[in-house]
Design a protein around this nucleic acid. Structure first.
Length: 566
RNA sequence: GACCUGGUAGCUCAGUUGGUAGAGCACCUCCCUUUUAAGGAGGUGGUCCUGGGUUCGAGCCCCAGCCAGGUCACCA
């Protein structure tokens, strides 16, 4: 492995610490008495008191016999003051002069014991009396500085590096940590909301023999012992409904789902959906619950029901408008498409500038009209309701109109955040809908939808009227934390693997050239170049490679440049 | 999948018409006992993403590829 000069220096420091009898990776528990956040937010209580802290040294300002450094723990950052005569003595200043000033580096994890005070400039600090090395850092961190105006300089901002080395991102970019803390606040808020109502959190299979509950391309795998294909779930809907059949009144699951499709700033191959099913409820009840839930989440997360999302200020305060999808299309395109057949709909689409083809049915055409002309306009939370039957194979037929279903999607900031139904519980209807879906997909789709016979069997035993909802957690977190990219709300977004580090071994050309030098040395550089037959670039790279490995050297003499082996 | 933009020191970035690879921070040496983007003096550090090509000469031009970001397409 090739080490950079900075890494070599740190390894040397590591060795010197050991030589001084200091274990750079001690095993002992290090008992702290406070967190940085507790001290900085409550200085008066800590003033003059002794505290023990542990964290990472993020900066160091050495001024002769005294220094300041910044310590960062999980709760925040704080300044420490390190004085030679406090942590060591004039007779033996090793701890200060050697350990602290020379052998410690930015990024090292240390423990300090000392007294809380305020500097002349008024910054809360700890006057260190005892310094303990807890873990040596061998790689230099990016140096990010924040000035007096709070402006960040030299931010570690390359997204590729940030995602590949999220641990570094979390260390140096404090706001990143905030996002993930909020993510947990959001899911905790939801759990509390559901648990307070007596809903049961459950776990259902991720490995499924039939990938049901949605129409998406699944990841496939294989079980060796059973010698059968298995799929990573694309949804958990059908399993949760089985539990409702089994007699639970309300079940929910935070589910990692997997879809083998394109990736962009709103799609990751694995993502999180919270699905909830409540018996004896309908989609109207679910809308009431949803707006109540989202208002609570916003307040629990940000302290207010109003959230800044990009350029928009979005209010999650309940209630939210409820607009039937056909009404939305009438408002925003001027066309009343209720009751139209596919020919008429295709005409409308063409008139408003939407490209259509023959395979598109009524449902798809309405979906296109809404998606293209309406969706992006719903910035404030809005329930779009009563989708056409064709698009919703798991949804109960609308009580007043057999062409529609009892379904809503919640739009926020022009995007879909949640999807909910009065669940279809008529097993005969369900079987027919599945068969229709199969016909649709057989029309030219490579992905045939499977019929989950066991799910239908479960419905045949009888499922109470139920309403269910799926809420996209990643998207919700994006909204609540004002992030435009899903990668910012996932600790480890999917990435292509990194290139392998180049090997330190000689490549073929270098071996050939080395042999040539060995048999002919010393040889004029230009003669060797000609003899090698390499292109200019290849020649240059190869010779530089050899000199770098310290196997050949070029000497400048009166007779010209000569190459010889070392 | 298509197109656009980018990849140079540990980090953030310059790099002129193709002519000896640069700055700030970090790092190393020295000075400095309440500083704070600490300061002062000096110094080290490079696979210019990879592989070909053009050229006397490539970080720069050409071709192919890799990785990322963006736009679009596809896709519950």
């Amino acid at each position: 492995m090739q080490l950079s000069p900075l890494e070599i220096i740190r390894r040397e420091s590591l060795q010197k610490l050991r030589e001084l009898g200091i274990n750079p990776y001690p095993a002992d528990e290090f008992k702290t008495t406070a967190t940085i956040q507790q001290i900085t937010s409550n200085f008066d209580a800590f003033k003059g008191k002794e505290v023990v802290l542990a964290g990472r040294m993020m900066s160091r300002r050495i001024m002769g016999k005294a220094s300041f450094a910044e310590l960062k723990d999980a709760s925040g950052r704080m300044q420490i003051y390190v004085n030679r005569d406090e942590i060591s003595s004039e007779d033996d200043p090793t701890m200060y002069n050697t350990v602290f000033k020379k052998l410690l580096d930015m990024g090292d994890i240390i423990g300090v014991k000392g007294e809380v005070f305020k500097t002349q400039v008024g910054e809360v600090s700890v006057n260190v009396k005892e310094l303990t090395v807890l873990a040596k850092s061998l790689r230099p961190l990016p140096v990010v500085k924040t000035d007096a105006d709070g402006k960040v300089h030299d931010a570690f901002a390359d997204n590729e590096q940030r995602y590949r080395r999220r641990y570094v991102d979390l260390i140096v970019n404090d706001h990143v940590k905030e996002t993930f803390i909020k993510r947990t606040k959001i899911t905790n808020s939801m759990r509390n909301f559901f648990n307070d109502r007596g809903y049961l959190e459950v776990e259902t299979p991720i490995l499924q023999p039939i990938p049901g509950g949605a129409a998406a391309r699944p990841f496939m795998t294989h079980h060796n012992a059973l010698d059968m294909p298995l799929y990573l779930r694309i949804a958990n809907e059908l399993y949760l409904k089985r539990l409702i059949v089994g007699g639970f009144d309300a079940v929910y699951e935070f589910a990692k789902d997997f879809r083998n499709e394109g990736m962009d700033r709103t799609h990751n191959p694995e993502f999180t959906v919270m699905e909830l099913y409540v018996a004896y409820k309908d989609y109207n009840w679910m809308m009431d619950m949803t707006e109540e839930l989202l208002e609570k989440i916003a307040i629990d997360t940000n302290g207010t029901s109003t959230v800044q999302i990009g350029k928009n200020e979005v209010s999650f305060k309940a209630p939210y408008p409820r607009v039937p999808i056909l009404e939305a299309i009438k408002i925003h395109t001027g066309y009343d498409v209720a009751g139209m057949n596919d020919v008429e709909l295709r005409e409308v689409c063409t008139k408003v500038g939407i490209q259509v083809d023959e395979t598109m049915g009524v449902g798809k055409l309405i979906d296109e009209l809404f998606g293209e002309k309406c969706e992006h306009l719903y910035i404030q939370p809005t329930f779009i309701t009563d989708y056409p039957k064709e698009m919703s194979p798991l949804t109960k037929e609308h009580r007043d109109n057999p062409a529609l279903t009892e379904r809503f999607e919640l739009m926020v900031n022009g995007k879909e955040l949640a999807n909910a139904y009065s669940e279809l519980n008529d097993p005969i209807d369900q079987r027919e809908r599945f068969e229709e879906q199969m016909k649709l997909s057989a029309k030219g789709d490579d992905e045939a939808m499977f019929i989950d016979q066991d799910f239908i069997r479960a419905l045949e035993y009888g499922m109470p009227p139920t309403s269910g909802i799926g809420i996209g957690i990643d998207r919700l977190v994006m909204f609540m934390t004002n992030n435009a990219s899903i990668q910012e709300v996932l600790f480890f977004p999917q990435m292509r693997p990194e290139k392998k580090a180049p090997s330190v071994e000689l490549n073929e050309e270098e071996k050939v050239l080395l042999k040539m030098i060995e048999t002919n040395a010393p040889i004029l550089l230009n003669d060797l170049k000609e003899k090698s037959g390499f292109s200019n670039k290849k020649w240059d790279k190869t010779l530089k490679g050899l000199t770098k490995h310290n196997l050949a050297k070029v000497t400048n003499t009166d007779e010209g440049l000569f190459v010889e082996v070392v």
